[in-house]
């Protein structure tokens, strides 16, 4: 493990916890895409099936369990506990346009044609685009609460740090996972526009709002 890997994981954890706490403290999931959170729950579920087949480390296992538990808790808060605050009218991204092509691609391009590996590859491809429902929702409403932008920032930062981790591991450990790197680049690119707005607006104390 290197510093980029660890800070990537912690950034990912921060994002998940920020979102969970935001919904819990404000008793509201306004401005949050429930569809996006369903996709992330699907991502964690399909990727971490190896919890049942292999043990890597206590750190690895506990982080996987925390990610899964938090993502399901978030989905529960949005669709059950605080359902009345869920803004379904603005959460209209067609997720089948992501899940179906990504499912097809994971059958075609993977490291090994086995159920577990295909599901894991599916999760990597899906994660790279899973933020689109949330970004789409922000573009529809034209604004985002500041705490939501912090969530998005840490979520985007995590994958950027993982890319640096991939470079590190290529040089110092001689391993390179092309699927993870390409998906990571796609994922990070999708955040670039948001990163720009976050740095130029939110960090200067302004609310993130898009021109009409």
């Amino acid at each position: 493990m290197n510093i980029f890997w660890l800070t990537g994981d912690l950034s990912h954890l921060a994002a998940i916890v920020i979102l969970l706490l935001k919904i819990w403290k404000t008793r509201s999931c306004a401005g949050i895409s429930g569809k996006g959170q369903l996709l992330f729950a699907l991502v964690f579920t399909t990727r971490y099936l190896d919890l049942l087949t292999s043990f890597i480390s206590l750190y690895n296992t506990s982080m996987k369990l925390i990610y899964i538990a938090c993502s399901y808790a978030t989905v529960y808060l949005i669709y059950m506990k605080f359902k009345a605050t869920y803004d379904g009218n603005h959460d209209t991204f067609r997720v089948e346009f992501l899940v179906v092509p990504v499912g097809g691609l994971s059958f075609l391009i993977n490291h090994d044609f086995s159920p577990l590996e295909i599901l894991c590859t599916f999760s990597i491809y899906l994660e790279s685009v899973a933020i689109l429902p949330q970004l789409f929702m922000i573009s529809k409403t034209g604004e985002a609460e500041t705490i939501t932008t912090h969530y998005l920032f840490f979520l985007g930062l995590y994958r950027a740090l993982y890319l640096v981790n991939s470079i590190w591991r290529f040089y110092f450990e001689g391993c390179f996972d092309l699927i993870a790197v390409v998906a990571g680049v796609v994922q990070t690119i999708l955040y670039c526009d948001f990163f720009y707005l976050y740095i130029t607006k939110v960090l200067k104390g302004k609310k993130l709002s898009l021109p009409a």
């Binding site: 890997w5 994981d9 990912h12 990727r47 190896d50 292999s54 890597i56 480390s57 690895n60 982080m63 996987k64 990610y67 490291h111 090994d112 590996e117 894991c120 993982y162 981790n165 450990e173 001689g174 391993c175 993870a180």
Partner: peptide, 10 residues
């Protein structure tokens, strides 16, 4: 290096 199919990253 980790063996192929060994998903040590999250």
């Amino acid at each position: 290096p980790p063996a192929e199919g060994d998903h040590d990253e999250l």
